[in-house]
Design a protein around this nucleic acid. Structure first.
Lengths: 157, 157
DNA sequence: AATAATTGTTTACTAGGTTAACAATCTGTC
DNA sequence: GACAGATTGTTAACCTAGTAAACAATTATT
């Protein structure tokens, strides 16, 4: 009966430990995202865009007149969660909610002139932040990383 | 004076758009983490471990008698944030806070017998969840991914 | 015309943290 | 040994980024 206890001891010996947390993709993803998003906020400054406002604005610039539910779908969040993001962007005068002729339920989102230029500016800052933060990685490593992350994203329901 | 406007138009034409969000490491990290952590929770069930309880328990099993501030440091969170995690694990009878002779400020964290076996069990479930979720990636791709993520983590302050 | 679905929104809630303050305790210096 | 300063675990208040459920307005389906 000491045998079972011994087996349990063996499985927790130091040599096994190293393959635990550090070998998990999820743990490394989380920790790496904390590093990147902290640096993102630092780079964009006190009253700059948070990651989610930046992502939303980027898609609104890319797909002008996108409706809110479609934008939420693209971002992978609920419609209700998008409301405060759009409220914020609209409050800063960067985005307009516009009625769509033919369907009075929906709101089309369009960047204002300010919104477009604020986005282009922020985009450059974000690119610089990533270039600096990832300067230890070769360009092809960054490509590989993005490719692998997109492969994981595609496994989504 | 139409020239500046034209330049701005050019920068937002569709051909440029594709390289925006999808080309950013931060955006892809976040989206990939959402996929992995959702599946983690699904795999561990309703009253199973959340990612952070699992990580904490893993380190407590790996480093028995670790003190709370050292564990917080390893997890990359504040001491105050660790309290509720340890409260939860202690409440489930998986971890004990033990006094340390020689320093009455600190609490050493040790897994109980139940804690050790709950961890080993959860670890197997987590490994199975990752193996299934990442079945589109070759083993060496997973290795590469983890290596790149750790490279990013090391750039932390 | 009636029923069902969709859209944007609000409200209440949750997870997973942070910051600041605190008492208890320990460390270093005089 | 006394005393200033640092460290530990903890609480309290707060914040970010969401989700889930309900709702009125509107549109689509039968």
């Amino acid at each position: 009966m000491a045998r079972a206890a011994d087996a349990s001891q063996l499985r927790t010996r130091p040599e096994d430990a190293e393959i635990d947390l550090e070998g998990l993709v999820g743990y490394n993803l989380k920790r790496a995202y904390v590093v990147v998003s902290s640096d993102f906020r630092r780079a964009l400054g006190e009253d700059g865009f948070a990651p989610r406002q930046f992502s939303a604005l980027s898609l609104i610039v890319q797909f002008p007149e996108i409706i809110q539910s479609e934008l939420a779908r693209k971002l992978g969040i609920e419609r209700s969660g998008l409301v405060s993001i759009v409220d914020d962007l609209e409050g800063r005068g960067l985005v307009s909610r516009m009625p769509v002729p033919g369907d009075r339920r929906v709101q089309a989102l369009t960047p204002t002139k300010d919104g477009r230029s604020a986005y282009l500016n922020a985009r450059d800052v974000v690119r610089a932040h990533e270039a600096a933060l990832l300067s230890d990685l070769a360009p092809e490593e960054v490509e590989t990383l993005i490719g692998l992350l997109q492969k994981i994203r595609k496994t989504e329901a």
